[in-house]
Simulated scan of single mutants.
Amino acid sequence: MTGPVELERLAVVAHHERAEAREHAMAIAEWCRGREIDFWIPSVDGDELRLGDHASDRPVAEADVVVSLGGDGTMLRSVHLLGGQAVPLLGINLGSLGYLTEVEPDCVVDALDRFALGAEAGEWHLDRRMLLDVSVNGQLVGRALNEMVVEKNQSGHTVRLLARIDGHPFTHYEADGLIVSTPTGSTAYSLSARGPIVSPQHRAILLTPVSPHMLFDRSLVLSPDEVVEIEVAGHRRADVAVDGQPQSVLSPGDEVRCSPSASTADFVRFGTYRYHQILKSKFGLADR
């Protein structure tokens, strides 16, 4: 067992529409002040929550830990702001039961105290989640914690997409779109498109069609080392989104590439992460 971690810099990413986010951000700022820890919040969050004294354009990736105040959406935003940097992310749940957050609001200060005591003292550990590098025509546009989606650009029409796996053509899809997801994202958009539920401790890539107009409508569960390429093969354009955020519009012949990232999303956990219990609660499953 060792002493406390060297916690010198802490950043908060907050949900703008959660009234309690300001209160908890101020409590975290006070906790940092008492320990001479450098504290800041992104300018857009500081402006919305009236925390201008703490607002900064400084990248959150410079922090020793990032605290996410919100729900799973805020956790996704925090991961994107980190830009693939290996910074521990502590999620404070200000929404309904989430898949990604760890701590309830009334336990914020206790969680920070435990984090400061250190992982080697057995107070916390990291839950490392797989990310996907997403490139459009060879240009990296983002890293997906949940999924990358290529979908139709025009309402009322399908889009024709060619899927390649490790450079080899698999098949053409006539569909509303294609989802390439991680195990973490298996309970997001992929699930609503009838994709399988995969434990987030697993490493895999899921390819799931959205409303396919063809007999083959199954998801594929691929090796985490395989690369998925999707080409717009028809005459209609398509949109690309990463974790729900629009990235670009594809023209016929354009291609999206999804590959396993060397980076991970590192979530702070204080005990055993019981994903199956969270899943059970989400779906209202009863004991048998």
Rank of each mutant, 00 (worst) to 15 (best):
R194V: 12
R194N: 15
G195A: 13
G195C: 14
G195F: 05
P196A: 12
P196T: 14
P196V: 12
I197C: 13
I197K: 15
I197T: 13
I197V: 15
I197D: 13
I197Y: 14
V198P: 12
V198A: 15
V198E: 10
V198R: 14
V198F: 11
S199Q: 15
S199L: 10
S199P: 08
S199K: 11
S199V: 08
P200W: 11
P200R: 08
P200T: 06
P200I: 08
Q201L: 13
Q201D: 13
H202V: 15
H202S: 15
H202I: 15
R203H: 13
R203Q: 13
R203K: 08
R203L: 12
R203E: 12
A204T: 07
A204Q: 10
A204R: 09
A204C: 13
I205A: 09
I205R: 12
L206C: 12
L206F: 14
L207T: 05
L207P: 06
L207F: 07
L207H: 02
L207E: 06
T208I: 07
T208S: 11
T208V: 13
T208N: 09
T208C: 10
P209L: 06
V210N: 00
V210Y: 05
V210D: 05
S211M: 07
S211I: 08
S211W: 03
P212A: 12
P212W: 05
P212D: 07
H213E: 10
H213A: 11
H213R: 08
H213M: 09
H213N: 12
M214K: 06
M214T: 10
M214I: 05
L215E: 02
L215Y: 09
F216D: 03
D217S: 10
R218M: 14
R218N: 14
S219K: 04
S219Q: 10
S219D: 05
L220W: 02
L220T: 02
L220A: 04
L220H: 03
V221P: 02
V221D: 04
V221E: 01
V221H: 05
V221K: 00
V221N: 01
L222Y: 03
L222C: 01
S223R: 06
S223F: 03
S223P: 07
P224H: 04
P224L: 09
D225N: 04
D225Q: 03
D225H: 04
E226G: 07
E226L: 02
E226D: 06
V227G: 00
V227H: 01
V227M: 00
V228D: 04
V228Y: 07
V228M: 04
V228E: 05
V228K: 02
E229G: 02
I230Y: 00
I230C: 01
E231T: 10
E231P: 02
E231Q: 06
V232Y: 03
A233T: 01
G234T: 00
G234R: 00
G234H: 00
G234S: 00
